[in-house]
Design a protein around this nucleic acid. Structure first.
Lengths: 225, 225
DNA sequence: CGGCGTCTTCATCGAACTTTCACAGGCTTC
DNA sequence: GAAGCCTGTGAAAGTTCGATGAAGACGCCG
């Protein structure tokens, strides 16, 4: 469902629009204004998909595409103003997975991203998670405690999914925010506390003495394990 | 699922690309570099579908299309660089079943091929789906609730088919759009809500308390299960 | 050309959710 | 024991979400 997407586009208007649309889809969006930054971010943040404008300062999209493809298999969607066949082929040879020719509709872009993510199996990667008597099934969007179905909100579910996917690992609030909301969401870290409380109220037999979602003082939270 | 497809395209780069993408879909692909060869192969190998480039040496795509159509009902997808209305009309008059205008994305081509195969009944029509007392028969394009035939519109039927094909799986609105419309459609996600409401009105005993098509808050919809 | 059914968008309302804030209590560190 | 930091918790504001009806857009058929 939600993927981390790097958008490399130098025109702020464009990038802002793209960001808004992709985020509306539930994705986390990181924006780079030139090719060099794009490469750096692609390496350090390991996004699930990269949207590349061909025309960019410093290092252009084609070069970024070539380098990225040499380093990883991250799905790449190219944005190009030039609609010549040569350009399309060139891009493909470089390893781009799909194209959108400008001018495009935001909806089209979103649809292409969706298709690409789907094809790349980014969304299907998660099977059901089982820890203790907690079961989290991303596909069904359901959580069970001891077989009992517990209704959770979207955020609560994501939080539980992230925590339960690595039992015993202590996450900081920032990490949890990043995993559940996106890498560049401007939200107070304390908000995580609120969600944790709500989650505990729903899944803990005694919220005052948590069995599943444990506090790690000075750090954040972890799932028992 | 897997069909035998003849691709008539003189540009090796293009044909290679198309071949790769179609084979990735599980199809068997045969390539012809000019119209004359294409005609021969179409006759001798009886493909399930033909992809025809308009511009080809020897015999052009339009001629091939005309001849093929006179001889058989094989589904024909035209590739054209010219996007004039006259051309499109000409192609369709000649019996082409669909067309793709260059430059196109590989994904779009693959989608059109899939849609065309489906429409032509070449792909094994999925067998009837039975969940609870709901029966969806894609081949007959009929839906039954408790044995009772319920008349649905095309969109309603597709929606029900997709949902019922994976009972319990929570679909986002985006996924439903993609599954029912294909990914080059520009449609608001809210439109799904409208179709769901219409569908519920027809199949639910009490639309206010759905038994079959359930809302998954924060996510989308799912079929009971 | 006009009517009809379908598809899509829009506006709206109420409900649910997210986020912030303030405060209390507990633990740690001197 | 006191100060300071950290977490738990509830209330409240702000925002989003979901259901729904109305209306426009579109294509089809007579």
């Amino acid at each position: 469902m939600s993927a981390r997407i790097l958008v490399a586009e130098d025109d702020p208007k464009q990038s802002h629009l793209i960001k808004a649309y992709l985020e509306h889809e539930g994705h986390s969006v990181l924006v780079a204004r030139d090719g060099r930054v794009a490469l750096d971010l692609a390496r350090s943040r390991t996004p699930d998909l990269v949207v590349l404008d061909v025309m960019m300062p410093e290092v252009d999209g084609l070069d970024v595409c070539r380098v990225l493809r040499a380093e990883s298999r991250v799905p790449i969607l190219m944005l190009t103003a030039r609609s010549t066949e040569a350009d399309l082929l060139l891009g493909l040879d470089l390893g781009a997975d799909d194209y959108v020719v400008k001018p495009y509709s935001p909806r089209e872009l979103v649809a292409r991203v969706r298709a690409l993510l789907r094809r790349s199996g980014v969304e299907e990667a998660d099977g059901p998670i089982r820890v203790l008597d907690v079961e989290v099934d991303p596909e069904r969007f359901e959580a069970r405690i001891g077989g009992e179905l517990v209704p959770l909100t979207a955020k609560e579910f994501e939080l539980l999914r992230v925590l339960a996917s690595a039992p015993g690992k202590a996450f900081t609030r920032g990490q949890l925010l990043q995993e559940t909301f996106g890498f560049d969401h401007n939200v107070q870290e304390r908000t995580v506390d609120a969600h944790v409380m709500n989650l505990r109220r729903k899944i803990e037999p005694d919220p005052a003495v948590p069995r599943y979602v444990l506090t790690v003082p000075g750090r954040g939270y972890k799932f028992a394990g």
